[in-house]
């Protein structure tokens, strides 16, 4: 943490973020400020661009326009063309250092099947943070213990339930001690009875004051989890505010209709 940064300065900021796949423009200019300790739920219908937006923040997708600013530092090297348009090149080294600081948990877990639970969590510590095996092992075991899997250290992912696999994935991301943690629909591929354990794990992180962004279809959970909510519609931020504002008193018609689809907010 940088002492000179005022605590209310955004840790992560994006300005006019755009992303196109071929001719299809998915994100049409998104602005966002994430302050330390914020928990932001990103909601919206299918095709609204919410997952793409999240994936641009750790450069799983490279934005086609706009800025991503991490802790005051712009990511990528901008170059102005002769016609005045700006193109940004992202070097792998820059993106690697962003990803060390901005972790991600995926819908499909993406655990390494040829590594045991603890090896999955140790991998980043050893290959990225260059920790010794024994230090990494200790830290990995702590993180797994924290997500309730302290008794599964040497088990391979294929022997775990979906909920357990996702908790390993959370431990793997946490082990890197990221400043921001991104969750991309973390419960969407889980059987309904396994959703609860993952949501409880995420809520426990909220109590530690961790900065998190979450894309989810579970509106009830988003309401409990989030300090702020962003409703994306057709690649733009349609409505944003505190969880209370957006869920209990949405200002726009489309937001109201979207939220009303969830039984918890239908009144």
């Amino acid at each position: 943490m940088n002492d000179t940064t005022p605590t209310d300065a955004p840790i992560l900021r994006c300005e006019g973020l755009r992303k196109s796949f071929g001719n299809l423009e998915v994100l049409k200019g998104i602005d966002l400020d994430v302050k330390r300790g914020d928990r932001i739920a990103i909601i919206g219908g299918s095709g609204s661009g919410k997952s793409t937006f999240l994936r641009c923040l750790n450069f799983m997708e490279q934005p086609t326009g706009g800025k991503v600013i991490l802790d005051g530092e712009r990511i990528g090297t901008p170059r102005t063309g002769r016609d005045g348009s700006e193109t940004v090149t992202y070097r792998e080294r820059d993106l690697m250092s962003v990803r060390k600081r901005v972790g991600m948990v995926f819908q499909q877990f993406n655990l390494f099947p040829h590594m045991s639970t603890i090896e999955n969590v140790m991998e980043g510590l050893v290959t990225v943070l260059r920790q010794s095996k024994s230090a990494a092992r200790t830290r990995a075991a702590e993180q797994l213990d924290r997500v309730g899997l302290g008794d599964k250290l040497d088990v391979y992912p294929s022997r775990l339930s979906g909920g357990q696999q996702q908790r390993v994935a959370i431990a793997r991301a946490l082990a890197m001690d990221p400043e921001v943690l991104l969750f991309d629909e973390p419960t969407s591929s889980l059987d309904p009875e396994l959703v609860g354990e993952v949501l409880r794990t995420i809520l426990a992180l909220a109590e530690d004051g961790r900065t998190m962004l979450l894309v989810t279809h579970e509106l009830g959970f988003a309401y409990r989890f989030a300090t702020h909510v962003i409703y994306l519609y057709d690649g733009v931020v349609h409505e944003t505010g505190t969880a209370e504002q957006v869920f209990r008193n949405p200002q726009k018609e489309k937001t109201r209709a979207f939220i009303a689809r969830s039984s918890e907010f239908s009144l």
Binding site: M60, M96, M104, N110, F112, A169
Partner: peptide, 20 residues
């Protein structure tokens, strides 16, 4: 997803290829 899982913890493409 295997590439993404590794790159999301800051691994390089080469390290991802070799280790994962």
């Amino acid at each position: 997803g295997q590439w993404e899982g590794a790159m999301a913890i800051g691994m390089s493409r080469v390290a991802t290829f070799r280790r994962v």
